[in-house]
């Protein structure tokens, strides 16, 4: 039974109506990344009454997030709460009638393979193309629509990928930048996040309520500061021999050798290490580290953090480690082996 008053204004909107609202309540959306784009998308979909949200994020809340990542508070920053957990806490206050799964971890092949078949739609709120290509092939494999969104400075871009209908990200691979041009080194203003999310969430509402005919079908880009808005019809860029979405598909982005064991987190002076072993007993590790009285430890139920030399090391339950203070993968590995085994 719907709480009719809660969604009344949305039900009054004819293209959605009672039927659309009922569909939303039965929908399951995966949001990959709970930073700026993911926070905003998740809040919009939770308020709209999407019945089941799954959030994946590998990071925790830091001070520099608060300017634009709308679900997080200063308290989340002080507690170094993982973003997926902090997001779920806030969203549960916003709408206690929906189901939210929060996953603190990397959106890697095995995890996506478990979740993707169960969802109706995937929203891209990641900050890198490695994960987007993984999402792309996962979405093609399980025939799920996904909505690309990205932001930098005052510029945003978005495109809805429909299996067997539109070009996929692999079709457009030649346009993916392969250098630091995507770094947040040039900063970001918050309204561009909202504008990309407006597009993504509206497309999501159309798809989830059975209004596919209303989809944009275009690649949309805008620069809010430069007062530019562009829409391009990209249907002609769909490749007949695309390895991800054509009849000859082999899903190159799902090959295991495409998985990175170390990754530089763009613009954050941070390297992530993902060791083979999965779960970590944080209490055990903390006990070892405390033997070294040079090390100041911080701990919450999800992670362990300490500073050493000019580095800050953060260890998560799933075994991942972030080394802040370097972009050198070898240096990061050295620190890792020195303190964590």
């Amino acid at each position: 039974m719907l709480e009719t008053n809660r969604y009344q204004r949305q039900i009054l909107f004819t293209p959605i109506g009672e039927t659309g609202q009922e569909k939303l309540s039965r929908s399951h959306v995966l949001i990959v990344g709970t930073g700026a784009l993911g926070s905003s998308s998740a809040e919009a979909l939770a308020r709209a009454g999407v019945g089941h949200l799954t959030l994946i994020d590998r990071d925790y809340v830091e001070e520099s997030n608060l300017q634009r990542q709308q679900l997080f508070s200063e308290e989340d920053m002080r507690q170094k709460t993982p973003k997926a957990i902090a997001a779920k806490q806030r969203l549960s206050q916003v709408n206690s009638h929906i189901h939210i799964d929060a996953i603190v971890g990397d959106a890697e092949i095995d995890l996506l393979r478990q979740i993707a078949p169960k969802v109706d739609l995937i929203i891209d709120a990641t900050d890198n193309f490695e994960t987007r290509l993984l999402l792309n092939d996962t979405a093609q494999k399980y025939q799920k629509p996904w909505i690309y969104g990205a932001v930098v400075a005052s510029y945003g871009v978005t495109f809805t990928v429909l299996p067997d209908k539109t070009p996929c990200l692999q079709c457009l691979a030649e346009y993916i930048p392969n250098n630091g041009a995507t770094c947040d080194s040039v900063g970001i203003i918050q309204p561009v996040v909202q504008k990309v999310v407006s597009q993504q969430v509206t497309e999501a509402l159309k798809l989830l309520t059975g209004n596919e005919a209303a989809l944009s079908g275009k690649l949309i880009a805008f620069d809010l500061w430069e007062n530019q808005h562009t829409e391009i019809e990209v249907a002609s860029l769909r490749k007949a021999d695309c390895p991800s979405c054509s009849e000859k598909r082999s899903y190159p982005n799902l090959a295991y050798d495409a998985r990175l064991k170390t990754a530089v987190l763009c613009g954050r002076n941070t390297v992530q290490l993902r060791p083979q072993r999965k779960k970590t007993d944080l209490a055990e590790v903390a006990k070892e580290l405390q033997k070294n009285n040079q090390i100041k430890l911080f701990q919450n139920p999800y992670l362990l953090s300490f500073e050493v030399d000019s580095f800050r090391v953060v260890l998560f339950q799933d075994g991942r480690v972030l080394i802040h203070g370097t972009m050198d993968q070898l240096e990061a590995k050295t620190i890792y082996h020195r303190y964590l085994g």
Partner: peptide
């Protein structure tokens, strides 16, 4: 003329 480039941030 319309010119679009992809970016990665999120």
């Amino acid at each position: 003329v319309e010119i679009v480039h992809f970016v990665g941030g999120g």
